[in-house]
């Protein structure tokens, strides 16, 4: 019989650091503020004071209309898209073991956008159809770029994977533009969509993507533990009784569902999946079981904040959200790449 472990050792071996909960609560508070701000600010005549009056029970019909039919759905969509993009980035980075693996940079969003452009040109327009097609496009994009990543030489160098993704994204972007050149109607319909934006979306879009998001959420919950062990290497994960190949497939499937859904609603929005997991890791450490929770809060926080800024920056017109996230995200990418060495996952 070994000596009983001391309390001190037991304490050290204990689970989640209590600080994580405090951080999560703080972020939840910030997110709540962002949501509120998203209802208060916007282009048009309804300013913060009128909006707040309506929220507090008073106010006028115009404020009612603007908030309940324009700003509230927009905030909800921002919340959903942000969660989907933040989580998908964390998942893709974990499965590629690459801190730069971001759905927007690797061509997953571009694959999704290309697929949607393709069916629009072919004459379709139903929202539900668009969601399914966007998800299939994301899946194909994901498989293509991870297939490239497994080729000899690219494997093991995070930056090469991003280069492969950039080439792929560029190619798909060019093809999408080409399609739109030939079809003016489709071009008008998706010109704003293709740069990524939350404006003019309807709540129906959320209903269409709900099933996909639900499935992705359940899969993510089921595979979180084995996925965390994959960070220790394939052999160790196998030794712990997991099946890395199966986990990887399931992760890719959920990433496709998440990115496809987000893209179907808001268009391709890059860099959220890079910046959000990066911040989450800085706050919660390397274990994906913890970073995922923070991504659920940080993703919408970033998307909603960027959306508010996009409304105010060049009011009364709007800057597309995708442009703004790229403006914030690109410097982060440069900073990460320029760092003395890449953080390893």
């Amino acid at each position: 019989m070994p000596e009983p472990a001391t309390d001190m050792v037991l304490l050290k071996a204990a689970g989640t650091p209590p600080r994580l909960l405090a951080k999560a609560l703080f972020l939840a508070g910030l997110l709540l503020l962002a949501c509120l701000a998203s209802l208060l600010f916007g282009a048009g005549d309804v300013g913060p004071v009128r909006a707040l009056t309506w929220l507090l029970g008073g106010g006028d019909d115009e404020a009612h209309f603007v908030i309940s039919t324009l700003r509230a759905p927009r905030a909800l969509i921002g919340l959903t898209v942000g969660m989907a993009l933040g989580v998908s980035g964390a998942l893709l980075q974990a499965v590629a073991r690459n801190p730069l693996a971001e759905p927007g940079l690797l061509g997953v969003s571009a694959g999704s956008a290309f697929a949607v452009a393709l069916i629009l040109v072919m004459g379709a327009s139903a929202a539900t159809l668009r969601v399914g097609v966007a998800q299939i496009g994301a899946l194909v994009g994901c498989l293509c770029v991870l297939g490239v990543a497994r080729l000899r030489g690219v494997d093991g160098d995070p930056i090469r994977l991003v280069l492969a993704g950039a080439a792929f994204t560029g190619l798909l972007g060019a093809l999408t533009s080409l399609l739109l050149l030939y079809d003016q109607r489709a071009a008008d319909e998706i010109r704003f969509w293709v740069v990524g934006s939350l404006s003019g979306r309807r709540l129906d879009d959320l209903v269409a993507i709900a099933p996909g998001l639900l499935v992705a959420g359940v899969i993510t919950l089921l595979i979180a533990r084995p996925l965390a062990s994959l960070a220790l290497g394939e052999r160790v994960a196998t030794g712990l009784g997991h099946q890395p190949k199966l986990i990887r497939l399931l992760v890719i499937f959920s990433v496709a569902l998440l990115v496809g859904s987000a893209t179907a609603v808001a268009g391709p929005i890059a860099f959220v999946g890079l910046v959000v997991p990066y911040a989450a890791r800085a706050l919660a450490g390397p274990d994906i079981r913890r970073t995922l929770w923070l991504c659920l809060l940080l993703g919408p926080l970033m998307v909603i904040t960027a959306d508010i800024i996009s409304r105010l920056l060049v009011a009364p017109s709007e800057m597309p959200l995708g442009v703004l996230t790229a403006l914030c995200g690109a410097p982060v990418l440069v900073a990460v790449v320029r760092a003395r060495r890449l953080p390893s996952l």
Binding site: A231, L232, G233, P286, D287, S344, L345
Partner: peptide, 8 residues
């Protein structure tokens, strides 16, 4: 060969 994520 073992590999652990940074900060573990």
């Amino acid at each position: 060969e073992t590999h652990a994520p940074e900060g573990l």
